[in-house]
Simulated scan of single mutants.
Amino acid sequence: MNIANNQLITKGFVAAGLMNITGVLIFSRVFTNAVIPEYDATVMSNFGLLMIVVWGFAYISVAKSYANVRWLVAVFAIEKLIYGCIWVNWLLQNNLSEVYEKDAMAGIFYTIYGANDWLFCIFFSIVFWKLSSKKV
């Protein structure tokens, strides 16, 4: 096992968690921004946003023990894939400039959240692949 590689992966899990936690709390203004749920009442309701925060804590919780939970890492990759696909679908069916007109923070949120999900989908997928092929 490469210690530097393991430390980098651990930092990746922490980064994924912090992105979820701080991203939601900042852009939702600690769940008080009504514009985010207005544009996606199913996925981005306040409950949905809270669950994104919970996922963030899950990523951080395994940051140092990810090698022992290979299949959970796969679940993380699938979860990020789903959110990434939902984001692309949302972009295709909504007018982002309309969201910006109502609230810049909500607009920024809808602009970047899926890109973040795709990035960490790739990260979790690579980690899962390396764990499956014993390269970590």
Rank of each mutant, 00 (worst) to 15 (best):
E98Y: 04
L72R: 10
L50G: 12
Y39W: 09
F124L: 07
W55T: 03
I126T: 10
Y59T: 03
V88M: 12
A63G: 09
I3L: 11
N6C: 08
V35M: 06
F128G: 00
A15L: 15
S65R: 12
L8K: 12
I21W: 00
D40M: 04
G84N: 05
F120C: 06
Y83F: 14
A67F: 08
A41D: 08
F124P: 07
C85A: 14
F47I: 13
N33P: 05
N68I: 06
K64W: 15
I26G: 08
S28L: 01
A41P: 10
G56T: 02
E98G: 11
L50I: 09
T111F: 13
V136R: 00
F109Q: 05
V127P: 09
L8G: 10
I52L: 11
V53D: 00
A77R: 01
F31H: 00
F120V: 07
A74L: 15
V127R: 03
D117Y: 05
A77H: 01
K102W: 00
V88R: 10
Q7N: 14
I60W: 09
Q93C: 06
Y100C: 02
S133V: 12
F120N: 04
I108F: 15
A106G: 01
T42L: 12
E101S: 14
S28Y: 05
M19I: 15
I26K: 06
M1I: 02
W55S: 11
L50F: 14
G12K: 03
A67C: 08
A58E: 11
N33H: 04
W90R: 05
S28P: 00
G84H: 07
V43M: 06
V30S: 09
V53H: 00
Q7D: 13
N46C: 01
F109H: 03
Y100P: 02
M1N: 09
I78L: 15
S65C: 07
A34G: 00
I60Q: 07
Y59F: 15
M19A: 15
L96V: 12
A104E: 15
W118L: 13
K134P: 00
Y83Q: 10
N68L: 06
E101V: 08
I126Q: 10
E79G: 10
F31V: 01
L72F: 14
L25G: 03
I86Q: 09
F123R: 06
I112E: 05
L92D: 13
F128L: 05
A58H: 06
F57N: 02
N68A: 12
D117S: 15
F31C: 01
K102L: 12
V69K: 08
S97V: 13
D103S: 11
W118I: 13
V14M: 09
E101K: 12
V43Y: 06
M51F: 14
N116Q: 08
N94T: 09
R29K: 14
E38A: 14
Y100T: 07
G12D: 01
D117M: 14
L119H: 06
G84R: 09
W87C: 06
V35K: 03
N2W: 04
V69Q: 10
Y66S: 01
I36H: 10
I36N: 03
S45M: 02
C85R: 10
V43I: 12
F13M: 02
L8E: 13
K135P: 02
F123V: 05
S45D: 01
L131I: 03
F120R: 01
V88I: 15
K135S: 07
V75S: 09
F123T: 04
I9K: 08
C121D: 08
A104S: 10
